[in-house]
Simulated assay, not measured.
Amino acid sequence: MVKRNVRLSSPEIGGLWGVYIQETMSTCLLKYFLHHVQDEEIKPILQKSLRISQTHLNQIRDIFSKENIPLPDGFTEKDINLSAPPLFYDLFALSFVYSMNRMAMVNLGFATSTVARADVLDFFTKALNQATELYAESTTLMLSKGIYDRPPMITYPEKVEYVKKQSYIVAAMGKKDL
Results as ranks from 00 to 15, higher is better:
1 M>S: 15
2 V>F: 15
3 K>I: 12
4 R>H: 07
5 N>I: 13
6 V>E: 12
7 R>V: 09
9 S>Q: 13
9 S>E: 14
10 S>K: 11
10 S>P: 08
11 P>A: 05
14 G>I: 15
15 G>A: 00
19 V>P: 02
19 V>T: 11
22 Q>I: 07
23 E>C: 03
24 T>K: 05
24 T>Q: 08
29 L>I: 12
30 L>K: 02
31 K>C: 04
34 L>E: 10
36 H>K: 10
37 V>W: 01
37 V>R: 01
37 V>I: 11
39 D>C: 05
39 D>I: 08
40 E>H: 15
40 E>N: 11
40 E>R: 13
42 I>Q: 09
45 I>H: 08
45 I>N: 03
46 L>T: 12
50 L>F: 03
51 R>W: 04
53 S>L: 03
53 S>C: 11
55 T>A: 05
60 I>E: 06
60 I>C: 11
60 I>F: 08
61 R>W: 11
62 D>A: 05
63 I>F: 13
63 I>L: 13
64 F>A: 06
68 N>I: 09
69 I>R: 01
71 L>H: 07
71 L>K: 07
73 D>R: 15
74 G>D: 07
76 T>D: 01
77 E>V: 00
79 D>T: 00
80 I>G: 08
80 I>S: 04
82 L>I: 01
83 S>W: 09
83 S>F: 05
85 P>S: 11
87 L>H: 08
88 F>G: 02
88 F>K: 02
88 F>Y: 12
90 D>R: 05
90 D>Y: 00
91 L>T: 07
92 F>P: 14
92 F>L: 15
92 F>A: 13
95 S>Q: 13
97 V>E: 02
97 V>P: 01
98 Y>E: 09
98 Y>G: 03
99 S>P: 06
102 R>Y: 11
102 R>T: 08
103 M>H: 14
103 M>S: 14
104 A>S: 10
107 N>H: 11
107 N>P: 06
110 F>W: 09
112 T>P: 00
112 T>D: 02
116 A>D: 09
119 D>N: 13
119 D>F: 11
120 V>M: 06
121 L>E: 04
121 L>T: 01
125 T>H: 05
126 K>V: 15
126 K>M: 15
126 K>D: 12
126 K>Q: 15
126 K>H: 15
127 A>M: 02
127 A>K: 04
128 L>C: 10
131 A>S: 14
131 A>P: 04
134 L>K: 07
135 Y>F: 12
136 A>R: 12
136 A>E: 10
136 A>G: 09
136 A>F: 06
138 S>D: 03
138 S>T: 03
140 T>A: 13
143 L>V: 14
144 S>D: 13
147 I>A: 15
148 Y>Q: 07
150 R>S: 08
151 P>S: 06
152 P>W: 00
153 M>C: 04
155 T>L: 05
156 Y>W: 05
159 K>R: 15
163 V>E: 14
163 V>R: 06
166 Q>S: 14
168 Y>Q: 12
169 I>V: 09
171 A>R: 10
172 A>W: 13
172 A>P: 06
172 A>L: 15
173 M>S: 09
174 G>T: 03
175 K>E: 15
176 K>I: 14
